[in-house]
Amino acid sequence: MSDIAKAELQRYLQEGRNALVWKLEGLTEYDLRRPLTPTGTNLLGLVKHLAGVEAEYFGVVFNRPFAEEISWLSPDAAPNADMWAKPEESCKEIVGLYQRVWEHADTTISQLPLDASGYVPWWREASNPVSLARILVHVTAETHRHAGHADIVRELADGSVGHRDGNDNMAAGSQTWWREYNEHLESVARGCADQ
């Protein structure tokens, strides 16, 4: 793969990162942290989780460990410790860590060729070794998946939607239009439930 392909892959990863962090803007500490799904999904937890994901995939996998200790990655961390922020973990600290992890990951990406070989200790043997290209695609997909979660959680928190700042990527419609659209979908769903 060419340097152009690498740059395109990295650009898509960065777009996902930016979208996720943008979803935090303008919210209270409560709205950043509150669980809005039965499994506890919350905005700040998604960022915290992805900081760990990138630290491991672009660090451990290519023998380039991230310099800072990340407590929720330790073997004795509580289950789901990466999916929520403790009271003493501020939004600013978590976003700052995530951005430092980006820098580390971006250095790994820039210094290694896409066919560089790595090893993912938490994957089964048959899935190893891996290439940087595979990990770049894997982490990009995971980042965008969680950015989609963040989009839904943000909408549940305060009604805000959008792909990125200045581009909501939504059909044009007033609050009345959206309410009527939602009622129509509910009617269709109820009609199908009887089938």
Rank of each mutant, 00 (worst) to 15 (best):
D82T: 06
H104V: 03
S127G: 01
L112T: 04
S117E: 08
S90N: 12
V101M: 08
L112A: 05
P79D: 13
A116D: 04
I94M: 13
A116N: 01
H104E: 09
I135H: 08
I135L: 11
V120H: 14
E103T: 10
I109D: 03
A85R: 09
Y119G: 05
A133S: 12
K86C: 05
A81E: 15
R124E: 10
A81V: 12
Q99H: 06
A85G: 10
W102T: 13
W102L: 01
L97W: 09
R124Q: 08
L112D: 04
E88A: 09
L114A: 08
W122A: 11
E89R: 10
M83D: 12
W102A: 13
V95A: 00
D82N: 12
P129G: 08
G118N: 02
L112G: 03
A78H: 07
P121V: 05
V120L: 09
A85D: 04
T107P: 00
R100L: 06
V120K: 11
W122I: 10
S110Q: 14
G96D: 01
A81L: 12
W123V: 00
V101I: 08
V120E: 06
A126V: 11
V120A: 08
S117I: 07
G96E: 04
V95G: 01
L132T: 07
A85F: 10
A126H: 10
E93N: 13
D82S: 09
S90A: 14
I135Q: 13
A85V: 10
E88L: 00
Y119K: 13
V120D: 04
